[in-house]
């Protein structure tokens, strides 16, 4: 973080913004602003060069053709070097796939990814669509809510910790390291899961104080409760407090 301003790159929201993922960069910035921490969002459009000096790069999901165009632009961009130099990355859906070694592109071709994760993506038999609740691998993140809508199946070959496991199903989802979040979850994922958003920010800023009256926490609990098929202790506590 230079000059105490955190710089967040929203990469190609025009290409990889089909599923509302531009909200991830927006909410990261908002959570710093309400804490009085200076932040700048650098929006990198399809015709722009990727800056080398940002603190965090956020990549979203999109259609096959747009993903192909994005892959062509990211290969050879300063993104990998920036990551190796200490920047953090959030990749969602197509963004997750692009972080791996290979992924399916438009019209059945196989594309090279960035190779930051030793992962490969193939086209699955059916499209996975619906609300998902994860039990986070890191228990301090609690339960995570998101909406998946993808046909790609990504196999992670590295021994990297998953973001979490699907509640009741046990299937692993995503990757969360000390500088990288990769997931299929939309929602946007960092909007629905403020603890996860703060984790991503803390990679750059260090520990963050909680936000008072954080409505995103209420959203997270409402969605986890509704789609996780069980009531959270938080909501029960709130109901008791109101009664």
């Amino acid at each position: 973080m230079t000059d105490s301003v955190m710089r967040i790159g929203a990469l190609y929201p025009d290409l990889l913004g089909t599923y509302g993922d531009r909200g991830n960069a927006a909410v990261l910035a908002e959570r710093l602003r309400v804490r009085g921490i200076p932040v700048e969002v650098v929006t990198v459009l399809a015709d722009d060069a990727v800056p080398a000096s940002l603190d965090c790069y956020v990549i979203g999901g999109g259609e096959d053709h747009a993903q192909t165009a994005a892959a062509q632009r990211l290969i050879g961009s300063p993104l990998v070097a920036a990551y190796e130099a200490g920047a953090s990355i959030v990749g969602v859906c197509a963004g997750f796939q692009l972080l791996g070694r290979t992924l399916p592109g438009a019209d059945g071709i196989v594309l090279d990814g960035l190779g930051i994760i030793d992962a490969t993506t193939v086209v699955g038999a059916t499209r996975q669509v619906g609300d998902v609740v994860l039990e986070a691998t890191d228990p301090s993140l609690g339960e995570l809510s998101g909406f998946e809508n993808h046909r790609g199946v990504t196999e992670v070959h590295d021994d990297l910790p998953p973001l979490g496991h699907v509640l009741h199903g046990g299937v692993r989802e995503g990757v969360l390291t000390d500088r990288m979040l990769a997931t299929y979850l939309h929602g946007p994922v960092l909007v629905r899961n403020p603890a996860l958003a703060d984790r991503v920010l803390s990679w750059t800023t260090g520990p963050l104080a909680p936000i008072a009256d954080d409505i995103a926490v209420e959203l997270n609990h409402a969605l986890v409760t509704r789609f996780g098929n069980r009531r959270s202790t938080w909501l029960r506590a709130r109901r008791r407090a109101r009664a």
Binding site: G17, Y19, G20, D21, G23, G130, D131, F147, H186, P188
Partner: peptide, 9 residues
């Protein structure tokens, strides 16, 4: 639509 993520678009 089950998914209101598009609010961010």
């Amino acid at each position: 639509g089950r998914d209101p993520s598009w609010l961010w678009d």
